[in-house]
Design a protein around this nucleic acid. Structure first.
Lengths: 210, 210
DNA sequence: GCAATTTTTGACCGATTGGACAAACGTTAG
DNA sequence: CTAACGTTTGTCCAATCGGTCAAAAATTGC
């Protein structure tokens, strides 16, 4: 019999461990080759098991992908969830930018996985975008609008403010190859994230000052 | 005999027309599915011809891709080339942002094609990035540094300034599905590009003012 | 009109892919 | 020990893919 949805029995210790192993391997492979470009064999090899063995834990290739996306979404939306209207607006926004940039540095595979899926038209995560993501953004847009009304930051379109923060920070994960190619070996080292952080903080602080 | 590199004979009228047809079809298919995700059959069908017929004009799938990239690169770097140090720096930068945003609106397939290639590690265009692109950026970085020295714009890292303009503008092509999902049917209509333009111009003008 | 050349097509091929399956192998509770 | 259950593997399959090839059809140059 197969696993996948725990219809009745709870997960075994081996099941929990092996599923975790597979998801880690799948993240590596999917983020580098996209859904279509990745093969089950590649994932199985990266996870150190045979293909039929992998298919015992996840019936179909797509099931691995959706399980991965589902689990990642929470981590990914974390920084935006933390954006709160306690504390100084400018400090909050700067913290958000910093956290997003740290995620681009520390979790580039997750970023590229999302980017790849969105690029292909988000066929597998559209409900998430229109549901959870949309409502979370709307919630934070209200917070930002409050800051504008109280004159703490300049008036502008809060949706596009969020988009631009996403774009500028995730750029350093998704387009990392290009960034490093343009900066060259000397300027493209590990310091590029600190340089980016300095630039972006300055841009947004000066650009949003009321 | 096959075509591809015009070793001796010049291109026929039919060859020019059909190759154009194929490249247009390939742009549509590659930008939606990536290199690996696209199939020759799909491209052939989109071009309205049989697969062997297509392979008569381009021997291999990769040849279509590289021909496409080669031709697109010029168009794509156009706006950056136009960035010149004649005229007011702020006006120049605003014009650059506006042109890049117009390209994201009018040529989203080209943008997604590049994004897809970069995401996979740019295996087919790395030389272009390290060569033509890098030197063009370096050239424009000098222009921007000149503006900073003369106090026309605030001092900041010109590389990351360019990166952030790329990121924020191309975001509206590459992540269009997400942008529309979050904005919803009412705010996600055609007006989203004007809203984005207004926001970005304000952000960069305020953020770069000396 | 005719021969040379270019263009198009149907049939085919080997490799890869996602996935099925039954049999073998391990593990664990009584 | 043993029966039940969980895990692993080798083998196989149908579909799809990139690409070949020879021959037919269309075009072109004279």
């Amino acid at each position: 019999m197969n696993i996948e949805t725990p219809s009745r029995r709870p997960r075994t210790r081996i099941q929990r461990e092996k599923r975790e192993l597979i998801l880690e391997a799948a993240l590596e492979v999917f983020s580098n080759h996209g859904f279509r470009g990745a093969t089950i064999d590649q994932i199985a090899e990266a996870a150190g098991m045979s293909k039929p063995n992998l298919l015992y834990y996840f019936r179909r290739k797509e099931d691995i992908f959706t399980a991965l996306i589902q689990r990642l979404m929470e981590t990914w939306l974390g920084p935006l969830r933390e954006l709160d209207n306690v504390g100084d607006p400018m400090t909050e926004l700067r913290g958000y930018i910093r956290r997003k940039l740290e995620m681009a540095r520390d979790y580039p595979r997750e970023s590229r996985l999302f980017a790849n899926e969105i690029l292909q038209g988000a066929p597998r995560i559209m409900p998430l975008l229109e549901g959870e993501l949309k409502s979370l953004v709307n919630e934070k847009v209200d917070v930002i609008r409050g800051w504008m009304r109280s004159g703490k930051i300049v008036r502008c379109d809060p949706y596009h403010l969020i988009f631009s923060i996403w774009a500028t920070t995730q750029h350093y994960a998704d387009f990392d190859v290009q960034v490093r190619a343009v900066l060259g070996p000397d300027r493209g080292g590990e310091g590029r994230f600190e340089d980016a952080a300095r630039f972006l903080e300055q841009l947004y602080i000066e650009g949003l000052r009321p």
